[in-house]
Lab assay of single mutants.
Amino acid sequence: QVASGNGDRDPLPPGWEIKIDPQTGWPFFVDHNSRTTTWNDPRVPSEGP
């Protein structure tokens, strides 16, 4: 069983990049398509309500 969020081996969607926040050391994700950033890994399906 693979733990949720453990998709580091999967490629990011086109136009996405991983960067590290220098203050926290946490990775965040840059979507160059929409010029936005998020803490949520785009490779992990979001949980519904």
Rank of each mutant, 00 (worst) to 15 (best):
V2A: 11
Q23E: 12
G5T: 15
T36M: 07
E17C: 01
S34I: 05
R35K: 11
V30L: 02
R35W: 01
Q23F: 09
I20S: 09
P11L: 10
L12Y: 05
F28R: 10
D21I: 01
E47P: 11
G15A: 02
V44H: 05
V30H: 10
F29Y: 08
P22S: 10
N6E: 15
D31N: 02
F28E: 07
Q23G: 12
H32G: 03
N6F: 09
S46L: 10
N33E: 09
P42A: 02
W16R: 08
F29N: 06
P45G: 10
P27A: 14
T37E: 04
G7E: 15
H32S: 02
E47H: 07
N40W: 14
P45R: 08
N40M: 08
V44Y: 07
E47L: 05
T37K: 02
A3Y: 11
G25Y: 08
V30M: 11
T37I: 05
I20F: 08
D41C: 05
S4F: 05
P13T: 04
F29T: 04
H32K: 00
F29M: 02
W26A: 15
D21W: 07
P22M: 01
D10K: 06
I20E: 08
G5K: 15
N6G: 06
N33K: 03
D31L: 00
A3S: 07
R35M: 06
D10S: 12
F28W: 02
D41L: 00
W16V: 05
V44I: 07
P14L: 05
G5E: 15
K19I: 01
P42M: 00
Q1G: 15
G5D: 15
R9P: 08
R43K: 06
P22A: 02
E47T: 10
G25S: 14
P45L: 10
D41P: 01
Q23I: 05
P22Q: 09
G15H: 10
V30R: 03
P11E: 13
F28T: 03
V2K: 10
G25A: 13
P22T: 14
I18A: 06
S4R: 08
T24R: 06
H32A: 01
K19Q: 02
S46P: 04
S34L: 08
G48S: 09
V44T: 07
P14F: 06
P11C: 14
G5R: 15
P42Y: 01
K19A: 07
V44L: 14
P42S: 08
I20K: 10
A3C: 03
G5L: 15
P22C: 00
T24Y: 07
H32E: 01
G48A: 06
L12P: 05
P11S: 14
G5M: 12
P13E: 04
H32P: 01
Q1S: 15
G48L: 09
E17S: 04
L12M: 11
A3I: 07
F29P: 03
F29R: 03
F29L: 05
P13W: 02
G25H: 14
P11Q: 13
N40T: 06
D21T: 04
A3E: 05
N33D: 03
D41F: 08
R9S: 11
V2T: 05
D10L: 05
P13Q: 01
V44W: 00
P11F: 12
F29G: 06
R35T: 06
E17N: 00
F28G: 05
P13R: 08
V30W: 05
N6W: 11
K19S: 08
P45N: 11
P11I: 15
P22V: 08
L12C: 13
I18R: 13
T24M: 11
Q23T: 04
D10R: 08
W26S: 15
G5V: 15
G25V: 04
R43C: 04
R43Q: 02
Q1M: 15
F29K: 00
G7N: 15
A3Q: 09
D8I: 09
K19T: 09
D21A: 09
T36I: 08
P22W: 07
V2I: 14
P11Y: 09
R35L: 04
I20W: 12
P45I: 12
I18N: 13
T36H: 04
E17K: 06
F29Q: 03
S46G: 11
R35A: 07
G7A: 14
P45H: 03
P13Y: 04
V30E: 03
S46H: 06
D8P: 12
T24Q: 10
N6R: 13
S4M: 11
N6S: 13
W16E: 00
Q23S: 08
T24F: 00
I20Y: 08
R43F: 00
R9E: 13
R9C: 07
G25E: 13
P14Q: 09
Q23H: 02
G48M: 14
P27N: 14
I20N: 09
W16K: 13
W39P: 02
S34D: 04
V30T: 00
A3D: 13
G25I: 00
Q23M: 08
S4P: 08
W16C: 02
G48R: 09
P14H: 01
S46A: 10
I20Q: 11
V44P: 01
E17H: 01
G7F: 09
N6D: 11
P14W: 03
P11T: 14
E17I: 00
R43T: 09
A3L: 12
P42E: 00
I18D: 05
N33V: 06
S46D: 12
H32Q: 00
P27T: 15
V30K: 03
G25N: 15
N33M: 04
T36N: 00
F28V: 10
P45S: 12
G5H: 15
G7K: 14
V30I: 10
D8T: 11
K19L: 07
G25F: 04
G7D: 15
R9W: 07
G7V: 14
R35N: 14
N40L: 09
N6Y: 12
R9H: 06
P27L: 12
V30Q: 03
T24H: 05
D10W: 06
G48E: 11
Q1W: 14
N40E: 12
N6P: 12
D10P: 09
R43P: 03
G48V: 10
W26V: 15
W16Y: 07
S4L: 12
P13F: 02
D10C: 09
R9N: 10
E47C: 04
K19M: 08
P11R: 14
R9D: 05
W39I: 03
P42R: 03
S34M: 07
S34F: 02
P49G: 11
P11A: 14
T24E: 09
D8Y: 03
D31S: 00
P14C: 05
T37H: 02
T37L: 03
V44C: 11
P27V: 14
S34Q: 06
P11G: 14
P14S: 14
P22F: 05
S46C: 10
I18F: 04
